[in-house]
């Protein structure tokens, strides 16, 4: 009897956690599928008619696909550059004999912690003097800087966990460090590379603060900036905001459901194993 009650209690608690996690977002999905009449109803209508009107309107009137393209370009470029550099740095920190490893990793950790505002003004000035405000590289550069700590930490952790014997054997066979990195370590660390790539992509896809400062021209704005600044004539265009939000979130929901295990292991590798 007691175990049945325990099981029931457990089930209720788990359901509560899951519902609380999903409900707010589902409410937005629900909103995005309403018609113009349903969305202005007070009290709110719960079951929508399933109209795609707001998706259509977000694309035609609010240029949703343009924001989407910018987000793909910026997040994609950030991920590729950060991961490449993290592989290099991670290998050096995990495998090569260099001094001050702890100091380097600690300094990187510091970078990942300080608030964006403490560097925002100067970063803006540097980009302005280079003429890179409102350009893809202007946003990718700060994103690479801010995601490198995460990437380097994850790659260092993964390289550290690979057995050293393989590499030693390769070296005895006359492999150089470069060959051993490219031919032995890299293929073996593919799961680490993948985990780091997912996390970096999510960061760059979601970032708002720097995107807001650097992309003042609509032509280069990413999805978060677009969604934050959508304006209607008299009221807020909630239907279009909800539709654009669903479009911005769906890729991440897919990533989370498919790669849940990797994300969990990556987050704890970045944070705990240092």
């Amino acid at each position: 009897m007691k175990s049945v009650i325990n099981k029931m209690l457990f089930f209720i608690l788990i359901s509560m956690v899951v519902i609380t996690s999903l409900l707010p977002f589902l409410w937005f999905v629900d909103t995005s599928l309403k018609s113009q009449i349903e969305i202005t109803a007070i009290p709110p209508v719960i079951i929508p008619s399933g109209s795609l009107h707001f998706y259509y309107s977000a694309i035609i009137r609010y240029d949703l696909l343009h924001y989407l393209k910018n987000s793909v370009v910026v997040a994609g470029a950030t991920t590729i550059i950060t991961i490449l550099l993290s592989i290099f740095a991670g290998y050096a920190l995990a495998r090569l004999r260099i001094r001050h490893k702890g100091l380097i990793l600690g300094a990187l950790l510091l970078v990942s912690m300080f608030p964006q505002i403490s560097i925002a003004g100067p970063v803006w000035r540097i980009l302005q003097s280079l003429g890179w405000l409102n350009s893809y590289q202007g946003l990718v550069i700060p994103y690479v800087t801010l995601t490198l700590p995460l990437g380097v930490w994850i790659m260092t952790t993964f390289f550290n966990e690979l057995p050293r014997e393989l590499e030693k054997a390769a070296m005895i066979d006359g492999c150089s460090h470069i060959q051993s990195l490219l031919k032995i370590m890299l293929p073996l660390s593919a799961p680490g590379v993948f985990t780091a790539a997912i996390l970096v992509f999510i960061y760059a896809w979601n970032e708002f603060f720097f995107a807001l400062l650097i992309m003042t021209n609509r032509q280069y704005q990413t999805l978060p900036v677009g969604i934050a600044l959508f304006q209607g004539q008299y009221t807020l265009p909630w239907g279009e905001i909800a539709a654009a939000s669903v479009v911005a979130t769906l890729p991440l929901v897919l990533l989370v459901f498919v790669f849940q295990k990797r994300i969990v292991s990556g987050l704890s590798a970045g944070a705990l194993k240092g």
Binding site: V18, S21, L22, P24, N206, F208, V225, A228, L255, V256
Partner: peptide, 12 residues
Amino acid sequence: SILIPWAIPTVV
């Protein structure tokens, strides 16, 4: 499901 709130863009 629990990871969904973490993954959603803060602006969203």
